[in-house]
């Protein structure tokens, strides 16, 4: 049995975690954003066909993932050694995540 270990230093800055959280909110929102854009514009829809058998879903999700990973990399580079206002970042990230849940729901997406 491994022995209980005292808490490691609480000095670990929260910036890395905040970067991952906000980027995940952005990535989730981008899925909904690109899906709605592809649904509303025929030109954008055909642009999103990265792989024909899967259709526009291939481009919508690939673009969202690219934006998510880019946002994560940029935020990580800026925040990794810092403590940031996590309450505000959590609020924004949860708002983006909640919006993405709502905006992927077809009756709501169709309002745009």
């Amino acid at each position: 049995m491994s022995a209980p270990v005292a808490f490691p230093s609480a000095k670990l800055p929260n910036g890395s975690g905040a970067a991952a959280i906000l980027a995940a909110g952005i990535g989730a929102f981008m899925v909904a954003f690109f899906a709605i854009a592809a649904d509303k514009s025929a030109a954008f829809k055909s642009l999103m066909i990265f792989w024909k058998p899967t259709g526009p879903l291939s481009g919508v999700t690939t673009c969202a993932i690219v934006v998510w990973l880019l946002a994560w990399a940029v935020l990580e580079a800026r925040w990794r050694k810092r403590n940031v206002a996590l309450a505000r970042i959590n609020t924004v990230a949860f708002a983006l995540l909640g919006l993405s849940l709502l905006l992927t729901f077809p009756p709501i997406a169709d309002l745009f």
């Binding site: 270990v5 808490f7 490691p8 230093s9 609480a10 670990l12 929260n14 890395s16 975690g17 905040a18 991952a20 959280i21 996590l86 309450a87 959590n90 990230a93 949860f94």
Partner: peptide, 16 residues
């Protein structure tokens, strides 16, 4: 992976 048990001392990270 980054914070592990430090999440106990970062309650907002744990919440997220």
């Amino acid at each position: 992976i980054k914070y592990g048990r430090n999440l106990k001392t970062h309650p907002q990270l744990r919440t997220a």
